[in-house]
């Protein structure tokens, strides 16, 4: 088992290298550079050139890349020219917001997706199953911004239960903190809940029809035990992987959701940075987001190995 996990860790090295090249490269493909942005509209070519020299933008790309990689590895993500602050600090300030939003929406998606998926499969072709399938289809099709606006209209404007925007840190109280990201988390988690539900349902239908579930029934086990211990146990392992992959969709969905609810997270940071051609910040956000994604998938792979007797040995 440890050998498989070790191999999985080794595979991480090329993944991360390619990732860094892509992040660095995409950046340079964008029209205009930081020197242009900094110098302003009517700067002289001389001023631009001197700015370029000052920030090393005139050097060959491979050199710039290695230079960048070197400082990233030392934890230095550069400075935001616009906000005049270290990128690392900006990220650390925004991370709790995005992390709280991501975790809450994932929990929401898993809770809803797994339960409805399992129940749908067990009660297949019943009214409950049809209703759940239709809801899932709606959940996937509804645009985030529309759902967000509707929820704000109902729960903030109409009922006044939840704040329409803004973020309260957990340090100012558990409930006020959770409350401030509750609606955004539901908005963000809805489509993922629907996807998890559909995969769980089809995986469950497959295992419920399997020979070993028939064996479990032949032992006289209760249907509850058959479903939970024999069918779910095997159906949910592939769902681990799926959930980790959906984490990517979740991170990108967070950008839009954070702007709807005006949450000061990664989403807002990167949108502003792109407008301002604040390269270092864009790079930093993308890098950290990608690292989180890679890490979550690594965890999922390890979970999958642990859940699989065949791989565990």
């Amino acid at each position: 088992m440890s050998r498989i996990i070790l191999r999985r860790l080794m595979e991480l090295v090329p993944t991360l290298l390619i990732l860094s090249v892509v992040i660095f490269g995409l950046q340079r493909l964008l029209p205009g550079d930081a020197a242009l942005a900094m110098a302003g509209e009517d700067a002289t070519p001389e001023l631009i050139a001197s700015l370029r020299a000052q920030y090393g933008l005139d050097r060959p790309l491979p050199v710039q890349y290695l230079d960048w990689l070197g400082s990233v590895l030392q934890g230095d993500l550069g400075r935001s020219l616009r906000l005049n602050a270290p990128v690392g600090q900006l990220l650390i300030d925004r991370l709790p917001v995005t992390l709280q939003l991501a975790l809450m929406s994932m929990l929401f998606a898993l809770a809803i997706g797994l339960t409805t998926g399992v129940i749908s499969a067990v009660k297949r072709d019943t009214r409950w199953d049809h209703a759940a399938n239709v809801s899932a289809l709606i959940g996937i099709s509804v645009p985030n911004f529309w759902l967000g606006i509707m929820m704000i209209l109902v729960f903030s404007v109409g009922l006044g239960w939840l704040p329409a925007s803004g973020f309260t840190p957990l340090s100012e109280g558990l409930w006020p903190g959770l409350r401030s990201t509750l609606m955004p988390a539901i908005v963000l988690g809805t489509a993922i809940a629907a996807i998890i539900m559909r995969h769980t349902r089809s995986a469950m239908l497959q295992t419920l029809d399997s020979d070993y579930v028939r064996t479990a029934r032949a032992k006289g086990l209760t249907e509850r035990r058959v479903v939970i211990r024999h069918a779910m146990r095997n159906a949910l392992t592939p769902v681990i992987t799926l959930t980790a992959l959906e984490f990517g969709a979740l991170m990108s969905g967070a950008i839009l959701t954070e702007s709807i609810f005006n949450l000061p997270g990664f989403g807002k940071l990167i949108v502003d940075a792109v407008y301002n051609r604040d390269y270092e910040v864009v790079q930093g956000v993308v890098l950290v987001t990608a690292l989180i994604f890679v890490f979550v998938n690594l965890l999922a792979d390890i979970g999958y190995i642990l859940a699989n007797p065949r791989l565990r040995e």
């Binding site: 070993y212 064996t215 479990a216 032949a218 032992k219 095997n234 007797p309």
Partner: peptide, 15 residues
């Protein structure tokens, strides 16, 4: 009353 199934390869739970 118990039964032995035709499919020995798939009738045991892999987990």
């Amino acid at each position: 009353i118990s039964m032995i199934f035709q499919e020995p390869m798939t009738s045991l739970n892999p987990a």
